[in-house]
Amino acid sequence: MSNHENPQQDSQTTPFTEDLAASLAGLGVIWAQSNTGVIGKDGGLPWHLPEDMKHFARLTTGHPVIMGRKTWESFPEKYRPLPGRTNIVITRQEGWGGTPAAEGAVAVKSLDDALLESQFAPGHGMVWIIGGGDIFAQSMDLADVAVVTTVDTTTEGDTFAPELGYDWTTGARLPSDGWLTSGDGTRYRITQWRRTKG
């Protein structure tokens, strides 16, 4: 965590995130993206935004999180598994679940298996898909809500956010207009989207 965090920004984000968490149920997707839709580069995030990491933790803690193996491996080892959450990892690698690299993860072979497994986990009234790009793409037709942090940068990357089409509508937003500013001067905003099911 940065030593230059702006407590004023964090004090704004905390009640927003807590109110959002209290209002949500179903299947959610959550990611941070650049202005051009980049969500990853070389297996990691192209920015360091502690305020968004705290927001992510507050929103997902207490609920199952579903991710691909590469997303799992992108977390520093000391943060695996993500604490306070059932970590469900989708992989096609036979036997991966029995390796030291998988310690703390529930390994499954498909998104369908992951969603089934999530229903036996604490906090399953809200399940979060947390990456990467392929898992997001598979999830979009099933998700009820998306929580997207937009980072005001045009950094290059190799993994992109899925598109939120016409069947998604904007819900809560922080701030309601403009941007928040992180402790290192990076501008960002958080938007909740809901999918309108026909």
Rank of each mutant, 00 (worst) to 15 (best):
E5M: 15
E5Q: 15
Q9M: 15
T13H: 03
T14W: 01
F16N: 01
F16C: 00
L20I: 07
A25G: 13
A25D: 11
A25E: 13
L27S: 05
V29F: 06
V29K: 04
V29C: 08
I30T: 10
W31Y: 11
N35A: 10
G40D: 04
K41I: 11
K41E: 14
G44E: 14
L45C: 06
P46K: 02
L49M: 09
E51Q: 09
M53L: 15
K54T: 11
H55I: 06
H55C: 08
R58G: 07
P64H: 09
V65D: 03
V65T: 07
V65L: 04
R69F: 00
K70S: 09
T71N: 02
T71K: 03
T71L: 05
S74G: 03
E77I: 15
E77V: 15
E77H: 11
R80A: 08
R80Q: 12
L82V: 01
L82I: 06
T86A: 13
N87R: 02
R92S: 14
G95V: 10
W96F: 12
P100T: 12
A102D: 06
E103C: 12
G104V: 10
A105C: 07
A105T: 08
D112T: 13
D113H: 00
A114G: 08
Q119T: 15
F120W: 10
A121S: 15
P122N: 03
P122S: 02
P122C: 08
H124V: 08
M126L: 15
V127N: 08
W128R: 01
W128C: 04
I129M: 07
G131F: 02
D134L: 08
D134E: 15
A137P: 07
A137Q: 12
Q138A: 12
S139L: 05
S139I: 05
S139G: 01
M140E: 06
L142T: 04
A143E: 02
D144H: 11
A146F: 05
A146I: 03
A146L: 02
V148Y: 01
T150E: 15
V151H: 06
V151M: 07
T155K: 11
T155F: 11
G157L: 09
G157K: 01
D158R: 10
D158L: 12
T159H: 03
F160P: 03
W168D: 02
W168N: 03
W168R: 09
T169G: 00
T170V: 14
T170S: 13
R173G: 02
R173N: 00
R173Q: 04
D177T: 14
W179S: 11
W179A: 11
W179H: 02
L180E: 07
S182L: 08
R187C: 13
R189P: 08
R189A: 14
T191R: 06
W193Y: 14
R195P: 05
R195L: 09
K197D: 12
